[in-house]
Design a protein around this nucleic acid. Structure first.
Lengths: 109, 109
DNA sequence: CAGCATCCACTCCGATACTG
DNA sequence: CAGTATCGGAGTGGATGCTG
C-alpha cells in the first residue's frame, strides 16, 4: 500500500483545486480555449456571473500562470486572454471533469 | 466549433466541483479507497483538519451518494465508510488531479 | 469511539456605482 | 471597452464543550 501521510494526501489535490476552485474558473478556461477570449464576450456569454467576478477570476488565473493577458492600446481598448503552456496541462483534466458532469448531472438533483 | 452557451459551460464542471469542493473531500475519498475508512483513523491521519470538518465533509459526501456509511452496534461503536459505485466513477478523475498536483506542486509557491 | 451544537472569524460573491 | 471600488449578505471552517 502507498505511504499514507497528511502531506501526501492533501497537497496534491489542493495544487489543482486551489487553482480551479472559484466561481467559474473552469468555465473561463474553456471559453478562452475555444477562442471566446475577450472580457466583454465572456461577460455576455455568462450573464449570471457578475463582471466583477469574471474580472477577479481572470486576475487570479493570470497570477497563477494559467492564462496570459494581452492588452492592445487601441480605441476602443481590447484585451484578449490566452491559455499559457502551463494552463494547457490542466485542460485535459477539465475536459474529464466536464465529461463526467455531462454523464452524471441528471443524478445531482 | 461546439455550441457555446451558459448552461453547457457552467453545469458540467459544477456537477463535479460542487461535489468535491470543500476542505478535504478528495483526501477523504482517497483515504476511504485505501481502506483507512474509520472516522477516528481519518482524524488521526489528518491532524490539521478539525474533527468537526471531517464529520461534516463525510456527511455531505454521503448525502451526495459518493460514500456509504456502515455503523456497527458494538462497544466501542465502530463506523466504516466505503465508496459507492457512483463514488467509484469519480475516483479516476481524483487520481488524475492528484497526479497533476504531484507534477506541478513545485510551481505553485 | 464517533460524533453534534454553538460561537465566531474569515472569505466568497453579487449589486451598484464609477473610471481610463 | 475593460475594468476598479465599496458595501453587505451568505457560506466556510476552526475552537471548544457535550453526548450516546
Amino acid at each position: 500500500m502507498e505511504e499514507i501521510g497528511q502531506t501526501e494526501f492533501i497537497c496534491p489535490s489542493d495544487t489543482f483545486l486551489g487553482i480551479i476552485k472559484g466561481k467559474c474558473k473552469t468555465t473561463l478556461i474553456v471559453l478562452i480555449k475555444k477562442g471566446r477570449n475577450r472580457y466583454g464576450e465572456m461577460c455576455r456569454t455568462l450573464p449570471t456571473i457578475s463582471p466583477r467576478m469574471i474580472s477577479k477570476q481572470l486576475d487570479e488565473l493570470e497570477r497563477d500562470g494559467i492564462i496570459e493577458r494581452h492588452s492592445f492600446a487601441e480605441l476602443p481598448p481590447r484585451v484578449e486572454y490566452t491559455l499559457s503552456d502551463y494552463g494547457e496541462t490542466l485542460y485535459p483534466i477539465i475536459r474529464e471533469i466536464r465529461k463526467w458532469g455531462y454523464m452524471h448531472q441528471a443524478r445531482t438533483k
